[in-house]
Write a protein that binds this DNA or RNA. Structure first.
Lengths: 187, 187
DNA sequence: GTCTATACGCTGATAGAC
DNA sequence: GTCTATCAGCGTATAGAC
């Protein structure tokens, strides 16, 4: 690993590929985005994309993966954790992350993508939540809460269509939060 | 393996294509299953697959879609609806249906597949549930319950790995059922 | 009306020369 | 490191034989 002037980036080319890949995958999904299109948008040769990232699926995982951000806040009070989690997930500022999750799920037709998604959810969320939950069956309950949040993120575009205003969005936070809270308190 | 008698429109060839498509999509997913492989398994020419079903995505929707079965039982008592729904969804006898759902979600990278999935969920489940729920915000609550069940079906293979025995499965029905029941009662 | 043969333009990926 | 050339496989269209 050579160290260059910039802290995070390696080569400029690699960065350019990653940037256009991130944008195109997010906008059009995995299948509809071709390696050639990514290369064209980045102004490089298609073969370079593979040279740098080994395969399209590894590029996707590298670029869409739950890389750095800490996952939902789990440090708040247990009594309101359900609500906190839902508010976090539906936060308009986190739109891009939510879309990235949905994009990964919809690309999980692919084995490597599915495995990466499961591992990331485990490390960044389920294990930490398991440690945080009180009472019995903590591992199962953490898994179930993750399933509920996954369903919410996945279904959110459809759900949002049926909402009239921001008050309705707040109502969703209340309703879904209370439902998850039942799992937090179930131990 | 014999092919059943043709219904009104069906030719034997069409049936054979549908049968092998259903099996291969279920086993390997959408992307990994090629039109040519379906044709080979059915013993027909690849072009015939397209002739009969117009496109790969339409074949997938026709064959994997929520075609006939009535969707979850919504006619039981409201007081235990949450539990009933979860028990229905996790019923080992319904393994194939659950897998089909997950396969469709994972193929929903594709616009037509995603649209079909959303429409089917609406017609077969959400609209009926909306009519059944008491109180306020019934449409939103029905949508949220659908999201929770979707998350459960999607996450079930992973969840099942963390369960030790059938008692744990029963515990999941209790826990998740109670959580959904909170949405049923929230009106 | 089925069905076969062939072909087109795309895909992700590789080998090897600069 | 980068580019050229090329690969086998994909979904699909079409022309024409039964």
């Amino acid at each position: 690993m050579s160290i260059t002037a910039s802290p995070v980036t390696g080569s400029t080319t690699r960065e350019a590929i990653a940037a256009s890949a991130r944008a195109m995958f997010a906008e059009r999904g995995y299948t509809a985005t071709s390696v050639r299109a990514i290369a064209a948008a980045a102004g490089v040769d298609p073969a370079l994309v593979i040279r740098h990232f080994v395969s399209k699926e590894q590029l996707f995982v590298a670029v869409m993966g739950w890389t750095e951000n800490p996952g939902p806040e789990l440090d708040g009070p247990l009594e309101t954790l359900g609500r906190t989690l839902v508010a976090h997930v539906l936060d308009p500022a986190r739109d891009a992350e939510r879309r990235a999750y949905a994009t990964m799920v919809q690309a999980s037709d692919n084995d490597a993508v599915r495995a990466s998604l499961r591992d990331a959810a485990r490390v960044h969320f389920i294990d930490r939540l398991t440690a945080r939950l009180p009472g019995a069956d903590v591992a199962v309950r953490a898994e179930l809460i993750a399933a509920q949040l996954g369903g919410l993120m996945q279904g959110w575009p459809t759900i949002a269509e049926t909402l009239a205003d921001d008050a309705d969005r707040a109502r969703v936070v209340d309703l879904y939060g209370a439902s998850i809270q039942a799992l937090v308190d179930a131990g």
